[in-house]
Design a protein around this nucleic acid. Structure first.
Length: 300
DNA sequence: AAGTTGCACAACCGCCGTGTG
DNA sequence: CCACACGGCGGTTGTGCAACT
């Protein structure tokens, strides 16, 4: 059992590509086209693994790639798509043709995730992620090196989506908007994010009108609250949950609709939505959107 | 000026799905 | 149906560099 390594490890060069190697690879592909990555390095005279050649070509050498800083528009697209698709960088990259999945992934890990986390931790009242001017958030200004002081813990703050948050024993305690707390007192609300965050949930206990959430899950749910559109994104049936958990064939079943089916038309539409308005709508229509939450079992 | 620290990013690693014999 | 090769993808790591002490 077990596959043979993609290439013989012995004698192959690793690490950064030299200009000479780049030139060889570009010339070879120009003459012979892409594909046959396994045999490419041998045929081209490169002491590289085929996968390494492919990665170098895909991410840096092929034409049509846009290098340099991400624009504000690109950032917003990434944030919104990530809220929907999770870490499916190749799908996200499909909506930013000049960017590679690796570049987007790196950018997310080094820039955007930190911004959003800072946003959440500081409870900034900036109107929700969809309308956040990312450049104004902590970390928005590129800064390199040096020691950074760790942000102090927050006690209690009101957020623009109507919830109240405070921290207790390492968890984020979230209270729903007063309107929901009063109208739906005695019920529980569980917010589920996309497939990759299926376990992320905020449960508002009907008696205390509070919900406990991991700080990281808070960010997910914040995005979810502002982006949820219908049952496709919110609320698990058993079938849906099974699809989330299984990663069935990389299909990414969400509420019976595959991610591939969602993209691009639904996602393009999604990007145009008034996220803040959707957030308010979500709270207003909580009873309709999550009917399974109001059954007798969930109240036990 | 030198040492320290953390960021940014290129590249690697390993798993998974698909195609093929 | 099975085993294998290959390509693709997402997670992770290594390294260079600049800011800071």
């Amino acid at each position: 059992m077990g596959r043979a390594p993609c290439c013989a490890k012995v004698g192959l060069k690793k690490g950064r590509w030299s200009a000479e190697e780049d030139e060889i690879l570009v010339k070879y592909i120009a003459a012979n086209g892409e594909g046959s990555w396994r045999s490419l390095p041998k045929n081209a005279g490169l002491l590289r693994c085929g996968k390494s050649c492919r990665l170098r070509w895909i991410n840096y050498l092929r034409s049509g790639l846009k290098r340099g800083n991400f624009t504000k528009e690109e950032e917003e697209i990434i944030v919104k798509l990530h809220a929907t698709l999770g870490n499916r960088w190749s799908l996200i990259a499909g909506h930013l043709p000049a960017r590679t999945d690796n570049e987007i992934k790196n950018y997310w890990n080094s820039h955007l995730s930190r911004k959003l986390q800072s946003f959440q931790q500081n409870g900034l009242d900036v109107g929700g992620p969809a309308v956040v001017d990312l450049s104004k958030l902590p970390g928005g200004v590129r800064r390199r090196g040096g020691r950074t002081s760790r942000s102090t813990t927050t006690t209690e703050k009101n957020t623009k989506n109507g919830t109240t948050r405070r921290e207790k024993q390492g968890m984020v305690v979230v209270s729903p908007p007063a309107s929901l707390a009063q109208s739906e007192k005695g019920h529980s609300v569980v917010l589920h994010a996309d497939q990759s965050q299926a376990s992320s949930a905020c449960t508002f206990d009907g008696n205390t009108n509070e919900g406990l959430m991991d700080p990281n899950e808070e960010m997910v749910s914040e995005l979810l609250c502002t982006s949820a559109m219908d049952s496709v994104l919110v609320g698990p049936s058993e079938e849906t949950m099974a699809g989330w958990g299984s990663h069935d064939g990389d299909t990414g079943v969400i509420g019976g609709t595959t991610v591939e089916e969602l993209a691009p038309s639904h996602l393009d539409k999604f990007l145009d939505w008034d996220m803040e308005g959707m957030q308010a709508k979500l709270w207003d229509e909580a009873g309709e959107m999550w009917p399974w939450m109001w059954d007798s079992e969930s109240r036990a």
